[in-house]
């Protein structure tokens, strides 16, 4: 990739990151989103997530989960209000917001776009304007967090699906986000890699919002669950009690996990 060293404009991100307050980690107020082709994907979505919470986001395909996620760090811009750590998601805040919200996409081949693991994990820190030594330190730290320290110099396409998913998580951990948002993290994983991933997510001391169809993982890992259908939030509460409401689950095409 081309070499341009970070300049003063990116250093300003650092200053503003330090100023972010200890407000609710994520606050969404009356968010609407309509695609350019006129399809309305989100209507009147409101959601608060406090620091340290681990929240599951479930619902059938096309419910608007991915659209909501893309609104949370300003890749999509809907009507309404999205706040991350007290900072409104709007154009002039985007560089800071993107460091605060660690977004991990469903397909790690989209997330890992650099030839080597190092370059991919360093991408976020470099674009935040961190100095070179700090970038190296963050890459080491993030890879250690996901248990992949030995993979620094590996080529991304040589990795297994499970390894790719974990490195995809490392790419955003290196940015020190306030909230980690994952889209379908356990899809496409064999049972052992899935187990490793769940253990990793349990271990990470971070606020989390995870979109998934994996109800067993939801039961295992997330005390709070948000159900979406047709662009709206239809339920939001403790996972255990929502799982008891069979009618609700059935109405939105969900299944209670057995065992």
């Amino acid at each position: 990739m081309p070499i341009i060293h970070p300049d003063a404009s990116t250093q300003a991100i650092q200053q503003r990151l330090a100023e972010t307050a200890a407000a609710p980690t994520l606050r969404v107020e009356r968010l609407d989103y309509t695609y350019p082709d006129g399809h309305k994907a989100l209507s009147d979505v409101s959601l608060d997530i406090q620091e340290g919470e681990k929240v599951a986001l479930v619902g059938p395909n096309g419910a608007g989960k991915s659209t909501l996620i893309l609104n949370l760090n300003g890749i999509f811009r809907g009507e309404g209000r999205v706040e991350v750590a007290g900072m409104t998601v709007e154009k002039q805040n985007l560089p800071v917001v993107r460091a605060l919200v660690g977004l991990v996409f469903q397909n790690p081949d989209d997330q890992l776009f650099s030839p080597t693991v190092f370059e991919d994990v360093a991408f976020g820190p470099l674009h935040m304007g961190l100095p070179e030594t700090e970038v190296y330190a963050r890459v080491q730290e993030a890879l250690a967090q996901v248990g992949m320290s030995d993979y620094v110099q590996r080529l991304s396409y040589h990795l297994s699906m499970g390894e790719k998913k974990r490195i995809a998580i490392a790419t955003v951990l290196a940015m020190h986000p306030k909230i980690l948002i994952l889209d379908e993290p356990s899809s496409g994983l064999d049972p052992r890699s899935r187990r490793q991933l769940i253990n990793l997510l349990r271990k990470l001391p971070l606020t989390m919002l995870v979109s998934t169809h994996d109800m067993l993982m939801v039961k295992d890992l997330f005390p709070r669950m948000v159900i979406m259908d047709e662009g709206r939030i239809v339920a939001d509460g403790p996972t255990a009690s929502l799982f008891d409401d069979t009618d609700l689950l059935e109405a939105h095409g969900l299944e209670r996990p057995h065992c």
Binding site: I3, I4, D110, H127
Partner: peptide, 21 residues
């Protein structure tokens, strides 16, 4: 895929310049 990769880059602070060490 190009569109998805672009979004993934935006999500990590890409603004049109590519930095590398």
């Amino acid at each position: 895929r190009g569109d998805r990769v672009y979004k993934a880059m935006l999500a990590r602070g890409y603004t049109g310049h590519l930095y590398t060490l």
